[in-house]
């Protein structure tokens, strides 16, 4: 190494200015990164634009009496009865939650409060595998195994799909989601709280029920809200196991087949003539999509609020 610069004033401002080429290169890279980040914003804007612009045509031109109080969902005949879809969406979501809430939360409590680390290391990846199973597989399983082996024993028909069958399938699909968010919430509860409880002589179950669960309640609520949003948007399980084709008469019984919002969209799009139908068929797709989008967005925003609350608490 050479001796350090001994000359006073030998250093000029220009020497420290950095090479303009490097400065330009850095700025360019920074802009490229910014553009990458902007893609998500553009995508969001396009989703909203696409939904609103097409749904607007529907809302402008549709005979509104056909969207409320008609006998069912017959989009190709210009009858767009929204209650049909909403009732079916409610049923499948409700049934899904009856399945997913106890299973998901129970699994989460066991993993977080009871399982030994070695067991956890095996069980968690298995739950993650369940989370990775595509919904078409659950649709197949619901229709061909759950319907004859489970639904047939609780009053349903085993030979075809129904809201009940689809709901159970959707429920299984959302178990890992409920489990993972609940477990995160319980993991956020400080160890000191548990130790305080255990130190006072409380047993594991008591600590869990009276200390951990109340402390994690926002996260548990969030897990259910996010799961409801997921269930509302689930398409393929209901499309395959929901027991309805592309048109259906309104029904209030979960033992019947029907169409939820997303499965009605998929049905519309999968016909032989695909979405290019008569009149407002194409636009009705975007209208239903818009309703679904707003519903799930609202739920996600509420769920997000709950998750942040957990994080702020501890």
């Amino acid at each position: 190494m050479e001796t350090p610069d001994p000359v006073p004033g030998a250093l000029s401002l220009a020497a420290l200015a950095g090479s303009p080429r490097r400065v330009r290169r850095e700025r360019l890279i920074s802009r490229v990164m910014f553009c990458a980040a902007l893609v998500s914003v553009v995508v969001s804007a396009l989703i909203i634009y696409a939904l609103f612009s097409e749904a607007w045509i529907f809302m402008r031109d549709v005979d509104w009496s056909s969207t409320w109080g008609e006998l069912g969902w017959f989009p190709r005949r210009g009858i767009y009865d929204m209650p049909t879809l909403l009732v079916a969406s409610l049923w499948t979501t409700l049934i899904a939650m009856i399945v997913a809430a106890p299973l998901g939360m129970g699994a989460a409590i066991y993993l977080s409060e009871y399982a030994r680390p070695t067991h956890r290391a095996i069980l968690k990846p298995i739950l993650e595998i369940l989370a990775g199973i595509p919904s078409v597989v659950l649709g197949f399983f619901a229709l061909l195994w759950l319907a004859p082996n489970v639904v047939a024993h609780i009053g349903g028909e085993g030979g075809r799909g129904s809201m009940l069958t689809a709901g159970i399938g959707v429920g299984i699909l959302t178990v890992p989601l409920v489990a993972s968010i609940s477990e995160d919430a319980m993991a956020a509860v400080p160890k000191s709280l548990r130790e305080a409880s255990a130190g006072l002589g409380a047993r594991n179950a008591v600590t869990t029920l009276r200390v951990v669960l109340p402390a994690a309640v926002s996260g548990l609520v969030a897990s259910l809200i996010v799961a409801v949003s997921r269930a509302l948007g689930e398409t393929m399980v209901v499309f395959m196991a929901g027991g309805a084709a592309d048109a259906v008469i309104r029904t209030y019984s979960p033992y019947d087949g029907s169409l939820t919002m997303p499965s009605a969209m998929a049905s519309l799009a999968s016909g032989t003539d695909q979405v290019v139908g008569e009149g407002l068929t194409f636009q009705s797709l975007f209208f239903v999509g818009l309703v679904l989008f707003l519903l799930t967005l609202g739920l996600n925003l509420i769920g997000d609020r709950f998750v942040t609350r957990v994080r702020e608490q501890y």
């Binding site: 250093l11 000029s12 401002l13 020497a15 420290l16 950095g18 490097r22």
Partner: peptide, 16 residues
């Protein structure tokens, strides 16, 4: 720094 104002707007932190 050797007479140059390090916080001059022309100075590049990387160079410093």
């Amino acid at each position: 720094y050797h007479g140059v104002d390090l916080y001059d707007s022309k100075v590049d932190a990387v160079e410093v």
